[in-house]
């Protein structure tokens, strides 16, 4: 695939990025088939997640005690390609604990689990497209991609917009992390401007004095707000 895809032109990483070894056998190599712009969007809320509780958005209150680590507030807005808020959109997050360990059976690196931290949360955006999570700052952790490989601290985000083409899974990073230049997943996004769009910013307005630092991370999805198309049996 020599030609840049429209996704890459918009700042998304290529499928094949050999420094991230797992892409070598999983990246498609046939040219992508272009779906014409005139194709109606698949619309609909369509995530069927059922009820969402308040504790789903507060990862520090899902157990008896409080997790160890630096308490933080993560907030921002989910916007469509026109900059309009995505309302009532599902945002799901997952992350390592403060020691850099996931509560997952395949994470066996010798850092402690925290009995008071599961590291999974979800919420719906409000009328301004805003989401808000309370959590602890995740630690960096080693992985086996190459010798002495470490992931910069990050929170995984899964986001739904108004249509199927706006579906996004990404990772949010923290400002100034010295591991960025050594991380092939971060570096798979080549454009420095696009890299900056994955980094949260410290926000004193979100910070709650004497309690938690606030970080702001706005998410922009592909595609415009869906205009309902004619339905065949309407």
């Amino acid at each position: 695939m020599t030609q840049q895809t429209t996704g890459e032109a918009a700042g998304h990483p290529p499928y094949l990025y050999p420094d991230y070894k797992s892409t070598r056998l999983r990246a498609p190599k046939e040219p992508l088939v272009i779906l014409p712009r005139s194709l109606p969007d698949v619309t609909g809320p369509a995530h069927g997640r059922g009820r969402i509780d308040a504790t789903d958005a507060d990862l520090t209150r899902q157990h008896e005690g409080e997790p160890l680590g630096e308490r933080i507030i993560l907030t921002g807005r989910v916007l469509d390609g026109d900059g309009r808020p995505v309302r009532n959109g599902l945002v799901e997050v997952w992350q390592a604990n403060a020691a850099g360990r996931y509560t997952h059976q395949r994470d066996q690196h010798p850092a402690p689990l925290d009995p008071n931290f599961s590291g999974a949360g979800r919420c719906l955006t409000d009328d301004e497209g805003r989401y808000r999570f309370v959590t602890v700052r995740p630690g960096a952790y080693p992985w086996k991609n190459h010798d002495n490989a470490w992931r910069p601290a990050h929170v995984h985000f899964s986001v739904f917009g108004s249509s199927f083409r706006s579906r996004l899974i990404t990772q949010m990073y923290f400002p100034g992390d010295p591991l960025f230049e050594h991380d092939p997943i971060f570096q798979s996004v080549r454009d420095p401007g696009a890299q900056r769009r994955m980094i949260s910013s410290l926000d004193l307005g979100t910070t709650e004095p004497e309690w938690a630092l606030g970080y702001r991370f706005d998410i922009v999805l592909e595609g415009r707000d869906a205009t309902p198309f004619e339905r065949p049996h309407a």
Binding site: G11, S158, I169, R197, M198, V220
Partner: peptide, 17 residues
């Protein structure tokens, strides 16, 4: 309009979430 947030891999640890 604003530029989209780049995609990143789902990674191996998404199951519980």
């Amino acid at each position: 309009g604003p530029e989209p947030t780049p995609s990143q891999t789902i990674g191996p640890f998404f199951h519980d979430a």
